[in-house]
Each structure stands twice: as structure tokens, then as C-alpha cells.
Design a protein around this nucleic acid. Structure first.
Lengths: 138, 138
DNA sequence: ACCTCCCACTACAAATTGTAGTGGAAATCA
DNA sequence: TGATTTCCACTACAATTTGTAGTGGGAGGT
């Protein structure tokens, strides 16, 4: 259940997974528990994809701890161990901590630089967070 | 010259490079322009390492744009394209931007959480930075 | 002419991810 | 019941990345 890499040049789930893996996770996060067939058929709508290919990758996602597998008779059902929200929360937290550990203050500066052109709301939020932090400190 | 992955479970340069690559970059950042032989001999102090192995990896670092190669007669000299500081600055910036793009406000929260136990001064600094940002916005 | 040093070229191995064939066992159908 | 379809396990292969190293050629010294 441990992501190893954060990919600079991808977006969304593709930053954490391979493209097929990402599509599978996305689908299961949307639909919860599903059979291989259901996943394959859904992916098939986009482009042809072999049943066995989907099965292999889903089983690998089980091995890696991202999916849970359950047998219902001869049918195998798969579902995500975490919700998408939990997953993204965990990853963003780990990455933030990693970044702060590794680069400390530089990250803060970069963050503020990036925010300057961006979201006013974010700055407000940040300010409030800081206020509550300061209260906690007292 | 583009790093692809940021590795969660490594530290320092090993987050961006393979272990041998990282050792080579580290050495060249310390010693600037050097021959393969020099690099190999230095790495050899730690553990046996084949000359050709070092050469191959150094040439790959050139292909990837992290090193520059220069010929002096029959000798090849290698040196980093960026300073270590420039490199780390660029990476931490890219990562921070990526993170903010991808996760927005969640990153801020995580960052403040992580900082809570840490530096009070940092929080002050952050607050001031925010104040000046807010003024700029008006 | 020989030997040594340096490099180019080539190849292989492990890991990761996508791909898909073969075959077996279970369910369905004729 | 026998044939066919469905689903899965097992296996294998390809490309990529990174580390590893052999072979051989050319340049320079002795």
C-alpha cells in the first residue's frame, strides 16, 4: 500500500499509478465493488482492452495493497481499500511532509510565490490557519 | 534535464536519481569538472566499482542533460550543468508547484500541521509574507 | 612493435507496467 | 450429456529504467 513515486509530468492519479492502473482505480472509486468483467467492459468503451490484461493489473493492485479481492462463488470482486479522498489525503500529506523534510523553508517561499498569482481564498485560509496555530501555541 | 519522479522512500539526491547516479552527481557537484577515472576511483573507496559502469552511467547523465561532457585530447571531462543549489532550488520549486496544482488547500493544511511542532519563527515569517501579499493584492 | 589507458559499443539483469496466450474448471445451453 | 461459453490462474513477453560489465579499437608511451 505504499506509493513509491510522485510523477512530475503527469496529472491526477497518473502521478501515482500507471495509466491503466489509474483508470482501474478511478473506475472502482466511482463504482465501488466490481468484477473484472465490469471494469474491462467499461474501459473497453474508450479503446479495446483485453480481459486478461485488466485482470492481471487488478491482481497486481491487490498485491500492492490498493485493492481488496473477494470471491463470490467463482466470481471475483474487487474494491479499493481506501476511498479516493483518503488516498489523496494521505498522499498529499506524505508528499508535503517529505517536501518539508527535504527542503524546509524553501518550500514555504515557493508556495507563497506560487500563491501570489493564484488564489486569494487560499491566502485567507492560510491566514486563518496561522491564527489558530498561534492561539494553540499560547 | 527533466527529473521524472520524486521518490517517497529515499532521501536527498536519491529521491531524484538512482543510487549510483546520485553518488556521481554528488561527487561532481563537490569537485566540479572531473574525468571518469577520477569519479570511479573516488567511488571505489567505498566499494569496488567497475570503470565501465561509471562511464556508462555518466554518459547517460549527459544524455539526460544533467552533465556536460567535454573532450580534452583523448580525455573526457564531465561537469554538472547546474549547481547543486540551482538543481535543488528548481526541483523544490517544481514539486511545490505540482503539489499546489494537484492538491491546493490540502497542502497548506498539511504544511501547517507539519510546522506546528516546528519553528515558531517560521510561522511569524509566513504571516508577514501573507500580510504583504494581501497588500499587493489590493 | 608492444603494452597500457581510455572510450565506444554492446549486452545483460532486475524491476515496473502493459499486454496477452494457454489451459482448467465451472456454468450454461442445446 | 456433450458442446460451448465464462471466468480465472499461470505464464510469458515487451519496453523502460538503472546498475553492471565484457570486447575491442585507437592513442600514446617504452
Amino acid at each position: 500500500m505504499n506509493i513509491k513515486n510522485f510523477k512530475y509530468d503527469e496529472v491526477g492519479l497518473n502521478r501515482f499509478f500507471g495509466p491503466l492502473e489509474a483508470n482501474i482505480m478511478e473506475y472502482l472509486w466511482d463504482k465501488d465493488e466490481q468484477s473484472i468483467k465490469a471494469v474491462q467492459q467499461s474501459l473497453e468503451l474508450d479503446k479495446p482492452i483485453n480481459f486478461n490484461t485488466v485482470m492481471t493489473v487488478m491482481n497486481r493492485l491487490v498485491e500492492k495493497g490498493f485493492l481488496e479481492k473477494r470471491s463470490e462463488g467463482r466470481l471475483s470482486l474487487f474494491r479499493p481499500v481506501q476511498s479516493k479522498e483518503e488516498f489523496l489525503e494521505e498522499q498529499s500529506k506524505k508528499l508535503t511532509e517529505n517536501l518539508l523534510d527535504e527542503f524546509g523553508g524553501a518550500v514555504i517561499s515557493h508556495m507563497l510565490d506560487a500563491m501570489k498569482d493564484a488564489d486569494q481564498g487560499l491566502i485567507e485560509k492560510l491566514e486563518q490557519k496561522i491564527q489558530s496555530l498561534k492561539k494553540d501555541k499560547l
